[in-house]
Design a protein around this nucleic acid. Sequence first.
DNA 1: CTGAAAGCGCTTACAG
DNA 2: CTGAAAGCGCTTACAG
Lengths: 359, 359
Amino acid sequence: MARLKKPHPRRAATLADVGREAGVSTMAASAVINGGQTSSRIAEPTRRRIIAAAERLGYRRNAAAHALANRRMNTIGVVSIFSGGGFNHYFLEIFNGILVGAAQHEQNTTVFSLNDWNEVQSRLTQFCDGRIDGMILIGTPFRPSDVALPGHTPFVSIHANHPLPGVRNIESDEERGAYELIKHSLNLGHRRIMHVTGPHSDVGVRRRIRGYKRALADAGVAFDPALVLPGQYNAESGREVLRAWFATRKKHALPHLIFCGSDAIALGCMEVLTERGLRVPEDVSVAGFDDTLAARMTVPPLTTVRQPLREMGRMAVEELLARIENWETKPAAKPVIFPTQVVLRSSLATVPAPTKQTP
Amino acid sequence: MARLKKPHPRRAATLADVGREAGVSTMAASAVINGGQTSSRIAEPTRRRIIAAAERLGYRRNAAAHALANRRMNTIGVVSIFSGGGFNHYFLEIFNGILVGAAQHEQNTTVFSLNDWNEVQSRLTQFCDGRIDGMILIGTPFRPSDVALPGHTPFVSIHANHPLPGVRNIESDEERGAYELIKHSLNLGHRRIMHVTGPHSDVGVRRRIRGYKRALADAGVAFDPALVLPGQYNAESGREVLRAWFATRKKHALPHLIFCGSDAIALGCMEVLTERGLRVPEDVSVAGFDDTLAARMTVPPLTTVRQPLREMGRMAVEELLARIENWETKPAAKPVIFPTQVVLRSSLATVPAPTKQTP
DNA sequence: CTGAAAGCGCTTACAG
DNA sequence: CTGAAAGCGCTTACAG
């Protein structure tokens, strides 16, 4: 649709207008109104005249002009992917944190949505055209060799699958979270623990699997590869994967617990269990990962591993602003790793005594 | 934290750089690169030299400078409220639509979050400083007399509680939706239909109540004011309101159906029913309003009245761009009213034959 | 077909 | 303490 034509006849007041109205120069007005660091302070009466004039005219500093003069837009960009389904709760929690962090520093937030990570190279350079001061990348799957980040814009990433050179990555201790959850469920008597995961290309998925295996090993429970079911991170995938398992399970015993790689997957699994007349947690326990809104919306509410997504979003803003302010090509930074935490809700219960099904 | 200091030493290439590199003037470069409408077309060889130079330098048009010269940021603002809880699904659906619409027209979207609608006056004038070309207001509760919209920025509203002068409002036929839902449930045999609503100050709430009453009247069912329970739009409120009702219900019969003013309220109600050992829909049917993500996440999935929120978001963008382009103080426009639609899922079922409880 | 000039609105040195 | 000048990067008329 290309860009569009001319606008606004009724133009907003400018500093020149304010100066004229107050009978002073434009820069006197600038100094007073926008606190320019001209060491010379304007005399009190003049200052008051200027402020009054600005008020009368309803003056607002023009953001574009300010940005051009200062080389600073006071805006940060957020890039993520929004395929057909639109948002997911994972993104939303992070975005919420970003919005809060940005507001604290009086920064704006603009969202760039990609339909596909393949677009990232072309769109990214397009976005980095002075309209933002820095950019936060969420959940990038690509390798450093796949895309050249525009050199003149600072970046921060959250849950990047491959660390990008010179870009600080913000992650969470997923292995530990998985470990703690499985350990707890082993204490409750679970033994056959199924793990429905996201795509194995994802480093987070591999970390969770590591935690899961380690907890089993520590408890002396044999690892059964047939119980690890790969899929995608969303509810549809959870549904499909579990349905497929039931379709081919033959006489395999029900799992005691289905540990899901995301709350969304857990949701899908709960639906499948319900449609087969199985109760959660009486017949099968279910656990998720993330602790998004979804975890509090299921019936029963979902036990899950909390990633502090909002806090991670806020931290991303802090990191980014630090890079924007004292810009310099710092040596490749270490990732920031947030702790995870098991959140117990009623979808996970003690294994009932008379479990008489055998493998 | 105030605004922050100086940035980027490694500056991006400018048109002047491109011109120099190609051995032509800045405006020749401008004409070729950014398709300036200088009728004079540059000779083909020159044009190619310029394009090659731009490529070599990785030139990107500076957004701030472009905006300043053109008085157009190619950015639209979205204002809504994000109290502590963060997003709600209602907003998200709309926002999704806005993002899609904006992307189609190559416009950016920036989100301004308010903690409280009382801030709206001060923040609004702050936002309208040239960084956006127009603004979409979502769910404003205030009256036209409460806030003066900055005169030089076009506005569009979605679900404004009070129409704002000169601002086109986008709404949906809520009365009709409620009417159709109740009519359908009456056909299924429901008679005691409870209505847990949002705040009565909300025009949408009153419209739903109107539809509900009209459907009862058309079926010759007496309206019982004791069955209309006012609350807020969220799940917590749904929980509280229904708990309170159970606490004081004495020997009132269970309702056949609980018709909720939002999907979130319905969620809260389903939780309370579950905690009392009542099954949905076997013991009590439940219906929501909106058809957000939440409606597909409950177990069982929720029958609801669909408001086409994404489409409404897209329409808001179209309307706004129209106002931005051919700016003129049009006569107060009529609202755009989208149809609503009953979406049947399994939370609503036929009333069981042996309902032997009496009021 | 191409270039020199002036301006968008705000700032930052630099003179008075 | 205050003003005249020059520049941020891009555009739009207007001359050649």
